[in-house]
């Protein structure tokens, strides 16, 4: 099986879309001549031309809206918003329009739009460029939110997204582009809404998604040294959310910690924690722990920036302390 960077898995996914589906086209800022801010679409313009690899003005609202509009009449656009921070400029289009059209038209309209965007902090890009808003979008009915943590899932879930007829926020973590993982040559898909047990274990469940899956895996390895066996669950999607896999795991381990990069207040970990205690209250052998970034804007300076992103040591300490392990 070939090893592949997540960036290359995404490139492959996008090439497949353009190769296999005439209705698909890419649109976004600097995806063509520049080759993509994260180099995912390098070489695409030359191969597919300007019509299908469309560089846009810096007008997020209108090019996201243009994606929606073209999807309304049967195209399958793939829109790239350079970072999730910039999706805020297009939030009206995403939430008031993309997420509503199927419902408000009573199913007459479908919006098969994939909005690819880059999420996460840790790159010393300071407060406006280091945020994660997947949780916000996950709270909106009508949207799907896909948050891959591995090259395998990035490709496999993108393939599933292409078959889905809903607006999708496909959030790729900036620090994962250089992560390598195995990606088989043969065709496969990863269904949306099916969490992955990244590592089985018996003593505590660590729930994570996107960039935090690696943190949880590292923490699991450290806990293992103290004979604490962690089960790491990669949610893969926030919407649809696979709560069943989480609950099954909690029933086994009786302890759960949710690791999430974004702010604790309003974090998606709160939703998951609440769902867990509703569904499995009598299975809990301790409080449901939320390990989130603190409620502060991301600073520039590296030392303090690192203090706001959950780390594996942080997870280990929190698990040991809160569960008395």
């Amino acid at each position: 099986m070939a090893e592949m960077l997540l960036r290359d898995a995404m490139s492959k996914a996008l090439r497949e879309a353009l190769d296999e589906d005439d209705r698909s086209f890419l649109m976004g800022e600097d995806i063509g001549a520049y080759g993509g801010a994260y180099a995912v679409t390098r070489g695409f313009l030359e191969k597919y031309g300007e019509e299908r690899v469309r560089d846009t003005p810096i007008s997020e609202s209108v090019f996201v809206g243009a994606g929606i509009g073209s999807a309304m009449i049967g195209m399958r656009p793939i829109v790239e918003v350079m970072t999730i921070n910039f999706t805020l400029v297009a939030m009206d289009q995403i939430i008031n329009h993309a997420a509503k059209l199927s419902y408000m038209s009573n199913g007459q309209l479908q919006v098969p739009l994939i909005i690819r965007t880059v999420t996460g902090g840790g790159g010393q890009l300071a407060a406006t460029h280091s945020q994660s808003f997947e949780n916000w979008y996950a709270s909106v009915p009508g949207l799907r939110v896909v948050v891959p943590a591995t090259p395998y899932d990035a490709l496999g879930m993108f393939r599933s997204c292409r078959k889905d007829n809903n607006p999708i926020i496909f959030a790729e973590h900036a620090l994962l582009y250089r992560v390598k993982g195995e990606v088989p040559e043969e065709y496969y898909e990863v269904p949306l809404g099916k969490a992955r047990i990244a590592k089985p274990g018996t003593d505590v469940t660590l729930v994570a998604y996107s960039g935090m899956v690696r943190v949880a895996e590292e923490a699991a390895a450290k806990l293992e040294e103290d004979d604490i066996s962690s089960e790491v669950i990669d949610l893969r999607c926030l919407s649809p959310l696979d709560l069943d896999t989480v609950i099954e795991s909690v029933k086994k381990t009786n302890r759960v910690a949710i690791v999430e990069e974004t702010w604790k207040t309003g974090g998606f970990s709160g939703t998951i924690a609440s769902d867990i205690q509703e569904a499995a209250f009598d299975e809990l052998d301790g409080p449901v722990i939320r390990i989130n970034g603190p409620d502060v804007p991301a600073p520039y300076a590296r030392n303090i920036e690192q203090l706001m992103i959950p780390s594996s040591d942080w997870v280990v300490k929190s698990v040991k302390y809160n569960f008395g392990l």
Binding site: K264, R290, G293, P294, M308, W314, K317, Y321
Partner: peptide, 16 residues
């Protein structure tokens, strides 16, 4: 739960 070398926010997640 007050390891001095931990960021202050650590307490938020570890508070019993």
């Amino acid at each position: 739960s007050d390891p001095a070398d931990e960021p202050e926010q650590f307490h938020e997640t570890t508070e019993v």
